[in-house]
């Protein structure tokens, strides 16, 4: 499994191909559409992160020493960013997730998506992903 840093670099390279926002947005939308959905059973109130604008469901479970995330959102743009975050963090070691930064979102020019003022639930989602990792880490 590639490291978090490597995956983030891949994503940055991938987005470098687009000169304009429209290409980037279309790519995000495609990613959103292809995100493997969270299992309906995990789309519970407990797993719901309420943003003002869009809603996000996040589920995490531990497989050996790795954390596996599944997630969903009712907005496709949000879902696209979720796809990037899941791709980066899912299947990684808990400690690596806790220590990782999410600056790559800024570097691909989608900084506004991770801004607290967007109120799309993504900032809380990143926090929640790290909290799960932290909890799993302390179980070890």
């Amino acid at each position: 499994m590639a490291s978090i840093k490597d995956i983030q670099q891949d994503i940055i390279d991938e987005f470098d191909m687009f000169d304009e926002w429209m290409g980037k947005y279309e790519h995000i939308i495609d990613l959103g559409k292809s995100l493997p959905l969270i299992e309906e059973a995990n789309k519970t109130e407990d797993n719901l992160i309420k943003g003002c604008q869009s809603r996000v469901w996040l589920h995490a479970n531990k497989q050996e020493d790795k954390v596996v995330y599944t997630a969903d959102s009712d907005a496709i743009m949000t879902k696209g960013i979720i796809a990037l975050l899941v791709r980066t963090f899912s299947g990684q070691k808990a400690q690596d997730i806790v220590e990782a930064d999410t600056n790559f979102i800024n570097q691909i020019g989608l900084k506004e998506q991770l801004s607290p003022t967007r109120a799309n639930g993504l900032v809380s989602m990143v926090k929640q992903m790290k909290l799960y990792a932290l909890a799993f880490q302390s179980q070890n």
């Binding site: 939308i29 604008q53 869009s54 009712d74 907005a75 743009m77 799309n120």
Partner: peptide
């Protein structure tokens, strides 16, 4: 279409 997606674009 979710209103958030429309608003972003």
């Amino acid at each position: 279409i979710h209103p958030y997606d429309m608003g972003m674009i």
